[in-house]
């Protein structure tokens, strides 16, 4: 049966690929002419070109002109039409009598978003790492059908943020499933997405729900790389499970934990999609985060100010660069340690 299926798949694949192969052959003679001029090693440039062109136009160039954008003012879209204002946009972002009190700032929304994001990052990262670690530890035990259980926790990772947001909006609405459970348990239903603290909690919970499977998977790979004989030795000595965890598992998993910690930090700082669909930043501004602030100031709101959005995005980018450099440093150190082992 499998042979038949493979045969069909191969034949179908060949049928689909036949015209593509024909197309590729058409390119051969002009490319041979090119190769005669560049030499075979020079063709590397040709192979790199499409990817680097896209990189250059859509990543590097925007990155460079973003700095220029953040030093201009007005509502015009193209850089040439904009007026140079120096560091005014940054000055505007930072003009506060007290940074702790967003109401005292000119750009009060920016500081609300900053503090919201900070609170979100601290709580969500702690929760994410804890849940991912427990899940990985559970999945690392001797389980029947481990791949099934691994898939269970991984399922939401594939869902789109819009789908995630809508699934939970439906559960958390006033007449939703959660309130049904509260009601059946004898409690009073709560309007989860309308009460500030509950909406913030929901944003954390939903983002953990959506991504925890990804981090659990990374940690699981780390756990499975820990040599089994260490555990066997501990078992022979009759060491208690908690002690095994503190003395063997945690120290040996530390590099992976660090990677997961930094990755969750990087993602949490940029949180937008699923929370935007879930709460729209509300109620009021209680779930307004940095990326949404940039989006609204740059594109959506009546008081569109691209320069200000640029300045805010550069500040956020600086934080992310620092975090990414830490991540790369850790990754390199892990690699070296792996070689030594």
């Amino acid at each position: 049966m499998a042979d038949v299926r493979n045969g069909i798949a191969t034949r179908a694949g060949a049928m689909i690929l036949a015209p593509v192969g024909w197309l590729a052959n058409l390119f051969d003679s002009p490319l041979r002419m090119l190769q005669r001029r560049t030499g075979s090693n020079g063709m590397a440039v040709f192979f790199l070109a499409p990817n680097m062109l896209v990189f250059g136009i859509f990543v590097l160039f925007p990155l460079v002109i973003n700095i220029l954008y953040s030093m201009t003012g007005g509502g015009a879209l193209f850089l040439g039409d904009r007026t140079f204002v120096g560091a005014d946009q940054y000055g505007r972002l930072f003009s506060c009598s007290s940074y702790l009190d967003p109401k005292s700032c000119i750009e009060d929304l920016f500081w609300i978003a900053v503090w919201n994001t900070l609170a979100f990052v601290v709580l969500q990262v702690a929760m994410m790492v804890a849940v991912a670690l427990v899940t990985a530890l559970v999945l690392n035990r001797e389980l029947r059908a481990r791949s099934f259980w691994r898939a269970v926790f991984f399922f939401p990772v594939l869902l789109s943020p819009v789908v995630v947001g809508l699934i939970w909006r439906w559960i958390l609405q006033r007449q939703g499933l959660l309130n049904l459970m509260v009601f059946e348990a004898g409690g009073t239903p709560v309007n989860w997405l309308v009460e500030r603290n509950w909406a913030f909690t929901a944003a954390i919970m939903v983002s953990v729900w959506a991504h925890v499977g990804f981090y659990a998977l990374i940690l699981l790979a780390g756990l499975q790389a820990i040599p089994k004989d260490l555990y066997e030795a501990a078992e022979m000595d009759g060491t208690r499970p908690l002690r095994v965890f503190w003395r063997i598992t945690l120290p040996l998993l530390a590099p992976n934990l660090l990677v997961v910690l930094v990755l969750t930090l990087i993602r949490a700082v940029q949180i937008f999609d699923e929370v935007y669909v879930l709460t729209g930043g509300g109620p009021g501004t209680s779930t307004l985060f940095l990326t949404q602030y940039i989006y609204e100031v740059g594109f959506a709101s009546m008081l569109r100010n691209p320069g200000l959005a640029s300045a805010a995005s550069i500040l956020m980018g600086a934080v992310l660069v620092v975090l990414t450099l830490i991540q790369l440093g850790i990754a390199r150190r892990n690699e070296q340690r792996g070689k030594m082992r």
Binding site: V59, P62, L63, I65, N66, F78, P306, S313
Partner: peptide
């Protein structure tokens, strides 16, 4: 150098270049 450049772009999430990328697309 090209490899470094590609690594560097890992650090540039979309949310950091929204405004200029939008102007590039419009242009």
């Amino acid at each position: 150098a090209v490899m470094m450049l590609i690594v560097a772009t890992l650090m540039v999430p979309l949310s950091v270049i929204l405004v200029p990328l939008y102007s590039v697309i419009s242009a």
